[in-house]
Design a protein around this nucleic acid. Sequence first.
DNA 1: TCCTGTCGGTTCGACATATGAACCGACGGT
DNA 2: ACCGTCGGTTCATATGTCGAACCGACAGGA
Lengths: 265, 265
Amino acid sequence: MSTIAKALNLLDLFTPARPAIGLSDVQRLAGRDKATVHRHLVALSDAGFLEQDPATRAYRLGHALTRLAAMRAQTVPAGDMVSSLVEDISRQAGELVHLSQLRGFDLVSISHAEVHDHPVRVTFDAAGLPPLFNTSSGKVILAYSAQPFVSAAMAEHQVRSGAPLQNDAVLRDIEAVRAQGYAATRDALEQGVSSVAIPVFDAQGGVMGACSVAYPTARGHDPKEIAALLIARGPDLTARLGGIVPTAVADIWNERHAVPERRQP
Amino acid sequence: MSTIAKALNLLDLFTPARPAIGLSDVQRLAGRDKATVHRHLVALSDAGFLEQDPATRAYRLGHALTRLAAMRAQTVPAGDMVSSLVEDISRQAGELVHLSQLRGFDLVSISHAEVHDHPVRVTFDAAGLPPLFNTSSGKVILAYSAQPFVSAAMAEHQVRSGAPLQNDAVLRDIEAVRAQGYAATRDALEQGVSSVAIPVFDAQGGVMGACSVAYPTARGHDPKEIAALLIARGPDLTARLGGIVPTAVADIWNERHAVPERRQP
DNA sequence: TCCTGTCGGTTCGACATATGAACCGACGGT
DNA sequence: ACCGTCGGTTCATATGTCGAACCGACAGGA
């Protein structure tokens, strides 16, 4: 392992729960010699990747990260930031995966991945804007949106489609979605097509978009398994777009879909 | 220079104008041996600080930066991110410096630095919310805000203060501010107090707040010199808060306040 | 088709650089 | 005064880095 890797791995010790770490703690957590760790910390600090809290002398993430991340956000297309993850999910699920962002009352596509090894599959139409209702992506976005936005979206939908919505049913529906951390539909927008979606969050912890798996209902997937697949990648998806998963959602994702721990005998 | 510093310095080669760089270009720009540069690039890529464009094989900033910057934004108070810069400016100017953020129609304080070596100076009152009008911070924020916001802010101000605004004068004023890249007031909000302010921008390039220097008018500072001080730190201030200076503003700052280049004889 | 230049990437001996046990003074608790 | 721990430093050692040379692939140009 190169010196560079050793130093950069130190940055991974910093988590939301442990945002500042002293020299001795870093040494323990990294399992390396204190002198080495110290030199690495100094080098990282000199480059602006870490800084020392003037009061406690503890190290925390530095301002260079902010600058470089802003540059990346500016220059790298959003699709490229998540395409590898979207492709991973698609490969695991063996179905169409689609990540879209909320823009006004519409969903615009950021990235998608198709599969080629099934004769029957759902195909992706990049031109069409999927609606906010009757899709798993839309439901999951509404579920994590503020109430006024939901009302406005319902009004807008009625104006556009002419068809009235069962307001109560919709509200109960998204309430259930919020409680389970993902949304699933079966033959909703199109006969014979099912889908499962999880939310993606922005830097303020607000819902920004959704990542969905769509598959022919006839394939007989268990929506829970598809959801587990998505949820396993959920934190990473949000992180790569510069967002933060709200702790409430993170808790639901962990407790409901984690690999069960072995109980004490 | 440590290996770590050498590797991390490679990241500074990436700029908005040059977002992706091939191995040979990195080698030339860094002035190092190709093998060394290559190992460093690989190490940085392994840690997620760089990634390779699958098509061109060129390196660009990686997803780990996004993740770590989001963590820093979440855990480090906004004030800490800029306090050292604000203190630098205060030391250079020898006056009160104040960085505030727009929240609705109010300015809330993020960070400030006072000086202690003048018997007469402007003091900072952390409790009071400075208004959007009749302050340099407010003017510079309005100057870079969208027109509907300016109208709404003017309406709100009239409701709050009861005093009518000279709408035309205000609009001409902020137009001038936009043209010169900073705002200056003299005996505006308080008799005997002058101030100069520059805007601070968010990740989308929209104005997010302002950084101002306030001083007793009697000190006889040249507002242009104070502005030059602020403008020199402007890009860094915005960068540390995760923002992007719009190119239009960056151009004004460069052309109007840069050290003049020597003409060809 | 061959020649040439450049691309990204690799090899290996020489050697510069990172390593870690031991140590330092400061601090806080007892 | 003692003890444990803190952040940080020293120096002989050996490990990982360095860089000239090299590789195959590719793109023009003649």
